[in-house]
């Protein structure tokens, strides 16, 4: 029982980070119908950036987020302009898989050369602290990660719902042609939207680096999880990404702590399979456009 509740606590706290990564992924899909296989690599790049800021300048990874998000926003816009925009729109969804995978490999290569392949971790003063509540341990860094992810998701929500830019994005998601007729520059929205997705990856990366050791190859494990989360939640739905992250993260933590770690990775794939059998568009996905 103790292990079960502790597992739930760990899973819920970790879910925030995955929700953040997945929201960027699902946003990019919503705007451009591009499955971004480089999202994991962007998260790891974000983690390396905050690692570097921490080791070189002593900047706390959580405080480094404004810097890393801006940097990664620029990287994201550049990737969209250089690699995705030239694709012809009729075969963009198929080709973009290859292109974003190539971008992931490119980023992995750059990271291996810059930071080598040895495993890094960000050890802040509070990295191992935790609060005891009714005999259960609330890990401080996971709690921070959780709260920060919620805050970042809130910022993203406000950006999408309360700003002109957000309206342009939502309009593009719902009907790109009408949006264009009404004066929304969809190519500009696409570039900025990709940048925004990369910025969420950066924020998630800072938190990820606090929680787990990582190296340039860590993005492979990450992207398979992220894809499962967004598929589970429904491609293009940010709320779905949050719920998907919660399910994936909690189920795997609970199974690892009570049954077996060998089954934990398997569990969410089983859940994913079941959901897709019953509801092929995912939990919150719609078959029509405009799910964001």
């Amino acid at each position: 029982m103790h292990a079960l509740i502790q597992g739930i606590i760990l899973g819920v706290l970790t879910a925030g980070v995955y929700a953040l990564m997945a929201s960027g992924q699902t946003l990019i899909f919503g705007i451009m119908k591009v499955v971004n296989l480089a999202q994991g690599a962007m998260v790891i790049l974000g983690a390396y950036l905050s690692y570097q800021l921490f080791t070189s300048f002593g900047i706390d990874p959580l405080l480094a987020i404004p810097i890393t998000t801006v940097a990664m926003f620029i990287v994201g816009v550049a990737v969209q302009l250089l690699f995705l925009r030239p694709l012809k729109s009729e075969d963009r969804s198929e080709l973009s898989l290859l292109v974003t995978f190539a971008v992931a490999l490119l980023l992995e290569g750059i990271m291996s050369v810059t930071w080598k392949t040895s495993v890094r971790s960000i050890n802040t003063g509070y990295a191992n602290s935790s609060w005891t509540v009714f005999g259960y341990q609330i890990t401080l860094v996971r709690l921070w990660a959780f709260l920060l992810s919620i805050a970042a998701l809130l910022v993203l929500y406000l950006l999408l719902n309360r700003t002109r830019f957000g309206r342009a994005i939502r309009a593009t998601v719902q009907n790109p042609e009408s949006a264009r007729l009404l004066g929304v520059e969809s190519s500009r929205v696409s570039a900025l939207g990709f940048g925004l997705g990369a910025a969420t990856a950066a924020a998630a990366g800072s938190v990820y680096g606090l929680l787990y050791p990582f190296n340039s190859g860590s993005h492979y494990d990450l992207i398979s999880r992220l894809l499962s989360i967004v598929l589970l939640g429904g491609l293009g739905s940010i709320g779905g990404a949050v719920v998907g992250a919660l399910i994936v993260s909690t189920s795997s933590a609970v199974v690892a702590s009570t049954i077996s770690p060998s089954w934990s990775e398997m569990t969410f794939f089983v859940i994913l399979l079941l959901v897709l059998l019953i509801r092929p568009q995912g939990l919150f996905g719609t078959t029509a456009r405009g799910a964001i």
Partner: peptide, 20 residues
């Protein structure tokens, strides 16, 4: 006694199982 796969990223749940 548990064997965890090499791709296990988060060992906290396993160690929580042990601590219990």
């Amino acid at each position: 006694k548990q064997v965890y796969p090499s791709e296990t990223q988060d060992l906290s749940p396993v160690m929580a199982g042990i601590a219990a």
